[in-house]
Design a protein around this nucleic acid. Structure first.
Lengths: 197, 197
DNA sequence: GCGTGTGAACCAATTCACAGCA
DNA sequence: TGCTGTGAATTGGTTCACACGC
């Protein structure tokens, strides 16, 4: 969120921004902002505030999004192909360099400029290309097995879109992107609304 | 997460589940589970634990996902069309009943069995159909304006996939689904890994 | 004076410890 | 005895209050 706001400010040509301003935008206390900034090791100028570009760069450094991260996408179904075509990732340094699927009907088809490869080609591909992240968009049943296959190829970060809890060793990080949570929270809110009226 | 695990247990034919089991699965303390269950107003049986189907139903009631929620999708671009074709939503009672876009090249095309309508048709459509949720997948620049248009049509819940903070009145809920956060956290982790080795 | 930086105070959320029930 | 339910203790994260620098 900080990064988004700072990008907008940069486009508008702002030089400095105060913790107060950022706080108002994010609906949090301004001390919170100062603590967060302190955490990532950036320092502002008293009186003027934080340098917009400076803080933005510091965040990018901290998150590592200014280095390009390469990813493979496993499971070229509906969601998978959608993600592979999603242009927003490039903005944050994520580049999908290969798609894999087990379904022979999909293998060979082109999605977002990439030919879908068969799962069996994955080990060789990963060995000869630096792959930081595996994006997992396969059916529930296949998720854990493929997850283990991915880990065996020394990939240490998995972006999991399958609504299931993956079991992984401690040195592998999993980010669960569970779209169902969004639906659940919204429908809970709507239910409340109905009750109130 | 509870709902996912309970669904799996139900399929496996389990009758009862203990807070301890659920806790182990979710990597939290078992008291936490009992507090959570208490919060949604469900009660377990001492000795045996929680009824799998009972607790699952209670969660569905609490979240309102057993009632069907209808949604319109605004912005039939790449991500938008992906979401509209995503079959996982039905599982949680979300039904997308219309797609809207401003781009005349897209209007009229069929995505996931639905013809894309022009934004100008949105007011009439919303008036004659019950619409609980608006899914927003438009370019950044258009987001706030369309958000206001949506709110003016009395839609009270917005599922926002645009990486921007929408300004809305208090009685409207926004769920921000920012995919960039996922990238950021993963790349932060990868950066750390590099440092350590 | 204005805005950052930070230790102290506060508050909410998690964990502990034990009562109650089958 | 096994497992839930809940008040009490603890933890960690947010807010407050004020010192410091331009």
């Amino acid at each position: 969120m900080y990064h988004q706001i700072l990008t907008d400010l940069e486009i508008r040509g702002e030089q400095y921004v105060s913790s107060h301003y950022l706080a108002a935008f994010m609906l949090v206390d301004d001390t919170q902002v100062r603590k967060d900034v302190a955490l990532i090791g950036y320092r502002g100028k008293p009186k003027s505030g934080y340098s917009v570009t400076g803080l933005k760069k510091a965040i990018e450094d901290f998150l590592g999004i200014n280095y390009e991260n390469t990813a493979i996408l496993v499971g070229a179904g509906r969601l998978g192909s959608a993600l592979s075509e999603y242009p927003g990732f490039a903005e944050y340094g994520l580049r999908i360099i290969a798609l894999f699927d087990i379904d022979l009907d999909r293998v060979g088809t082109e999605i977002g400029g990439l030919k879908v490869k068969h799962i069996s080609e994955m080990p060789d591909f990963v060995k000869s290309n630096k792959v930081g992240i595996a994006i997992l968009t396969v059916p529930k049943k296949a998720a854990q097995i493929l997850c283990e296959k991915i880990i065996s190829l020394e990939i240490k970060a998995i972006w999991n879109f399958v609504p299931i809890r993956l079991t992984v060793p401690d040195n592998v990080i999993v980010r669960n992107e569970n779209l169902a949570v969004g639906i659940a929270l919204l429908s809970h809110y709507i239910k409340q609304q109905k009750w109130e009226s």
